[in-house]
């Protein structure tokens, strides 16, 4: 990881349309559905390239999920996209009964996750979606860290049968990976080695964690950064190694501290390898209007927030 080159920025959602087109060009028998937000998800790019493979169903998320299930049951690889507040917010029971219980091959693509949606405010900022989706048996949950990993996750999902939820983001954030990165569903990526403490992060907090690790390295603290892009199933081996080798864990995510990555890691550690742990996340509250960077700062979802959490957990480390 180098910080010398000028930082390329891209929104993770930018990968969606182009990846769908690539997959369809490659002969994947896919159908993608949108729900009146295609310009924002980018799904309409598939419609331009393969008109019979993309449909928008209007602002009707319950029907979106049911149609996705029907297509999948007929053998299609289905992508169903909306915003993370609506998918799963408007259609949790449909996902539960029509997708997760029958284990149908639907890829749920939720854009505009977290508070970094910005100015649209509280109703538009999903800070509960990971809690809802990880609660469903048969559901896998992925939050890629940048646009490179997003393309790989969307592609991996096409070739991995069964339900999966993939969360995308709205703002242009630093791209941290190049094409040599290899995302695998269920496998954490060691973004930076370190021995004193581990930051387990997902989404745009991975970049923030790397920044924090740089700052702390100057103080002589060796921070391991684990990109836990797959929140379910958790990479238990990577967590076990982090707990054993660094003895302190900080989780960092753009989500409520209840039920997301932090919740999953806390549960795993409590059951298997209790070590001091701190959480960076939204503190059981809702978002509001503001620029996306202002909101990340207000909720402490920044390199500074991660740094402070690392200091707290190191103070608790025996």
């Amino acid at each position: 990881m180098t910080t010398a080159a000028p930082v390329r920025r891209a929104a993770t959602r930018e990968a969606y349309g182009p990846t769908l087109v690539k997959l369809a060009d490659a002969g994947v028998d896919l159908v993608a559905l949108d729900a009146d937000l295609a310009a924002s998800t980018g799904g309409n790019k598939l419609g331009r390239a393969h008109p019979d493979r993309w449909y928008t169903v209007g602002a009707a998320e319950a029907n979106l999920i049911g149609m996705a299930a029907g297509l999948a049951a007929a053998g299609k690889v289905v992508y169903a996209a909306s915003f993370a507040v609506f998918l799963p917010g408007h259609c949790f029971d449909q996902i539960r009964v029509s997708i997760a219980q029958p284990q149908l091959n639907v890829k749920l693509i939720a854009s505009h996750g977290g508070v970094s949606v910005g100015e649209d405010g509280a109703s538009a900022q999903a800070v509960e979606d990971l809690a809802l989706m990880t609660s469903l048996a048969n559901m896998r949950v992925v939050v890629p860290a940048d646009v490179v990993e997003m393309e790989q996750a969307l592609t991996a999902a096409a070739y991995s049968d069964g339900p999966i939820y993939i969360r995308m983001g709205r703002p242009k954030i630093p791209v941290i990976y190049d094409e040599s990165h290899e995302f695998r569903i269920g496998q954490a990526h060691l973004a930076r080695p370190g021995g004193d403490v581990t930051v387990v992060a997902c989404g745009l907090l991975v970049g923030a964690a790397l920044e924090a690790a740089d700052a702390l390295a100057a103080e002589g603290v060796s921070v391991r950064v684990l990109n836990m892009a797959t929140i379910k199933p958790l990479d238990a081996a990577a967590l076990a190694a982090a707990a054993a080798e660094t003895g302190a864990i900080v989780t960092a995510e753009e989500h409520s501290v209840i039920g997301g990555l932090g919740g999953a890691v806390a549960r795993w550690l409590a059951l298997n390898a209790p070590v001091p742990m701190e959480q960076v996340g939204v503190q059981d509250r809702y978002g509001e209007s503001g620029t996306w960077t202002q909101l990340l700062e207000r909720h402490g979802l920044t390199a500074q927030g991660v740094t402070e959490a690392v200091r707290r957990v190191l103070a608790r480390k025996a």
Partner: peptide
Amino acid sequence: EMSGGALGMGLSFCLGQALAARI
């Protein structure tokens, strides 16, 4: 053919099925 019991979900499923058949 399909799970249910939570009401109101079957017709949407049929739409997806019919769309797949058309494709």
